[in-house]
């Protein structure tokens, strides 16, 4: 049943890893980390909260670029109709795109994380398993909304800016959760229980996964 989803994800991944697309988004994220380190006085260390915020902002920009790239593959080749004609449910296309996006964001984050530790002078505390769980949940949410809204602007040249205008505020609650938990991972004294944030993120993912699965077939159509 999920054959098409997996095949599509594999195709997108091999295309993304071959081209310069992923490198571009990783570079932008690393640049962001560097730029934010300019906001500090010499010798002072960034707070855990700030480092967490920078990490997730980099991930957010990376997500926007990644999903623009993923949907541009079909657009530039004019292959969207072919994909829609394949005898598989449209939700498989959504799952494939989301899966590919998830993997790409995760790959980028593997590079962002050490960059944050090195450039912003952070240490990882005991609560890293919690952070790993949060990473998984937050990336799922990023991939869900990215795959749904990335498809919105098909056949549209101004898609980058509009996509980010929509995605950033929609993802605000999830980012708040991710930043809070990561602040705790970077050794910041947590004001509230991180487990409640984990539960909240799981609920966010569930709601938007359900909505995206329901609505994707309206968004991804043969029309231009």
């Amino acid at each position: 049943m999920l054959k098409l989803a997996l095949a599509l994800a594999r195709k997108d991944l091999s295309l993304a890893l071959r081209g310069a697309g992923l490198v571009q988004s990783i570079l932008l994220g690393l640049l962001l980390v560097f730029m934010f380190s300019l906001s500090q006085k010499t010798g002072s260390l960034a707070s855990g909260q700030m480092a967490a915020a920078i990490f997730w902002l980099s991930s957010l920009f990376c997500q926007t670029l990644v999903f623009n790239m993923l949907f541009a593959f079909e657009e530039t080749q004019g292959a969207r109709t072919c994909l829609l004609l394949s005898p598989a449910p449209v939700t498989d296309i959504f799952l494939g795109k989301a899966l590919a996006g998830f993997v790409l964001i995760f790959l980028a984050q593997i590079l962002f994380f050490p960059a944050i530790i090195v450039f912003l002078g952070q240490t990882v505390s005991q609560s890293w398993p919690m952070g790993l769980l949060m990473l998984f949940l937050a990336d799922t949410g990023l991939a869900c909304l990215g795959a749904l809204l990335g498809a919105l602007s098909q056949g549209q040249t101004a898609r980058e800016s509009l996509l980010s205008l929509l995605v950033f505020p929609l993802l605000a609650p999830l980012l708040l959760a991710a930043i809070s938990v990561f602040a705790a991972v970077f050794g910041e004294q947590a004001g509230e229980d991180p487990t409640s944030w984990i539960g909240f993120s799981a609920a966010f993912d569930a709601i938007f996964l359900a909505i995206a699965l329901m609505l994707f077939r309206f968004v991804y159509t043969g029309e231009d």
């Binding site: 919105l152 609650p173 909505i211």
Partner: peptide, 30 residues
């Protein structure tokens, strides 16, 4: 957006739903 009228309506409807689903989540998280 530079889209066909029908598609623009569809896009708006989808965003209208996603946006309202986000409101309680924003409140909860805040």
């Amino acid at each position: 957006l530079n889209l066909s009228e029908q598609r623009r309506r569809m896009v708006r409807a989808v965003v209208g739903i996603v946006a309202f689903a986000d409101v309680p989540l924003v409140f909860l998280s805040a």
